[in-house]
Design a protein around this nucleic acid. Structure first.
Length: 211
DNA sequence: TAGGCCATCTGGTCCT
DNA sequence: AGGACCAGATGGCCTA
C-alpha cells in the first residue's frame, strides 16, 4: 500500500536490524547497565552478564511491543485516510497525521451541517402535510440540535468548514472544493426530492439561514 | 540546506 | 508485576 511507503522506510528488516544493533552495542547497553553495582570478581562474569542479557531482552521486548502499538495506530490512521474525501491517486501524497485528524474533524462537522440542512429542507416541503401519528425524525420536534463544536464554529459558510482543504496544509494535493459541492444533489434524498427542492439544495446560501 | 514528517527507542506513569 | 499509554529525544528521508 502506498500509505506504507513511509513507514516501511523505517520498519524494513534492515532498519529494524540496525535499530536492534544500535541498542545491542555500546551506548544503549552502557546506559542500561549504568548505575548497576559492581558484583564481586567471582560473580562478575556470570551474573553481570546475565543481568545485562536480561535487561537487553526486556528492552527488546518492550521496544517490540511499542513498535507494534505504533503500527496499530498507524493502521487505524490509514483506515481513517481511506474514508476521507481527498484524492487517492498514486500521484497524491499521503495526508500527514495531523492533517488527517483535522480534516476528519472538519468533514464530520460539514456532514453534520449538511444533515441539518437536509432535515430543514425536507421539513419545509413535507412538514405541513405530515400525517397524524407520524414519528419521522425529520419532524422539527425530533431534529437534534447541532453539536456544540459545530455551533461554535466561527463562520456559517459551508465552504469555511473546508478550511483544511487548502494547498498549504495538504501539500497541493487537496481536492478542488467543488468535490464537495455535489454533496446534496448526489444523495438519495435529493434524488427523490421534487426538482425545485433539489435545485435549492444544490444552491445553498453562503450563510446558515435563521442563525 | 532548513524544515516537516516520520519511526523508533526510552523512561515515566497509570492501570489491571 | 506486567502491559498500555504517553511524551521527549534522536536520526533518517523528503521537499521546497
Amino acid at each position: 500500500m502506498d500509505s506504507d511507503s513511509q513507514s516501511s522506510r523505517s520498519s524494513s528488516p534492515e532498519l529494524e536490524r540496525k535499530a536492534i544493533l544500535n541498542i545491542t552495542s555500546g551506548q544503549m547497553l552502557q546506559k542500561l547497565c549504568h548505575g548497576q553495582r559492581m558484583p564481586s570478581r567471582g560473580r562478575m562474569r556470570s551474573s553481570r552478564r546475565e543481568s545485562q542479557e536480561d535487561l537487553h531482552e526486556l528492552r527488546l521486548k518492550v521496544n517490540s511491543r511499542e513498535r507494534q502499538r505504533m503500527h496499530d495506530l498507524n493502521q487505524a490512521m490509514d483506515g481513517l485516510r481511506e474514508v476521507m474525501p481527498y484524492s487517492h491517486g498514486p500521484s497524491v501524497r499521503k495526508l500527514s497525521k495531523i492533517s488527517t485528524l483535522l480534516l476528519a474533524r472538519n468533514y464530520i462537522l460539514m456532514l453534520s451541517f449538511s444533515l441539518e440542512e437536509m432535515k430543514k429542507l425536507v421539513n419545509d416541503v413535507y412538514g405541513a402535510h405530515r400525517l397524524p401519528g407520524c414519528t419521522s425524525s425529520l419532524h422539527p420536534r425530533h431534529v437534534t440540535p447541532l453539536p456544540q463544536a459545530f455551533r461554535t464554529m466561527p463562520s456559517p459558510n459551508v465552504s469555511s468548514y473546508m478550511g483544511l482543504m487548502t494547498p498549504d496544509v495538504h501539500h497541493n494535493t487537496a481536492p478542488a472544493p467543488q468535490q464537495f459541492s455535489g454533496l446534496f444533489c448526489q444523495c438519495t434524498m435529493c434524488q427523490h426530492l421534487p426538482h425545485q427542492l433539489s435545485r435549492t439544495a444544490t444552491n445553498l446560501p453562503a450563510s446558515r439561514p435563521g442563525k
